[in-house]
């Protein structure tokens, strides 16, 4: 865990958003995962963040009204 300069949990928190966005480099990813494997505190908070994102995503999702789909089809160029 040599990459952690000071408090490993602080560093881990900073990596949470980029971790969940899947934009960490391989080296950073390995660093975050090795910390998460051994730290229940951070692991729970990562899980919570992931659940929270999923909740928001599902909560704001709406199906397309079928009539709208028909209206869009009607906008196609006639053959």
């Amino acid at each position: 865990m040599s990459g952690f300069a000071f408090d490993p949990c602080d560093k881990c928190e900073q990596m949470m958003q980029p971790y969940l966005d899947r934009v960490l480099t391989d080296v950073e990813l390995a660093e975050a995962e090795s910390h998460l494997d051994g730290c229940d505190y951070c692991a729970r908070r990562y899980r919570f963040e992931e659940d929270f994102r999923r909740f928001v995503r599902q909560a704001v999702a709406v199906p397309m009204p079928p009539e709208l789909k028909e209206k869009l089809r009607a906008l196609r160029t006639p053959l």
């Binding site: 704001v60 999702a61 709406v62 199906p63 397309m64 009204p65 709208l68 789909k69 209206k71 869009l72 089809r73 906008l75 196609r76």
Partner: peptide, 29 residues
């Protein structure tokens, strides 16, 4: 057209109402 569900999903959250969202999606297409 295959992407229209995704476009509507975002448009609905950009617009204040369902009607506005539908107009926005129709204008987009």
């Amino acid at each position: 057209l295959g992407l229209s569900d995704q476009v509507y999903g975002v448009a609905r959250r950009l617009a204040g109402s369902r009607e506005e969202a539908e107009d926005l999606v129709q204008e987009t297409f």
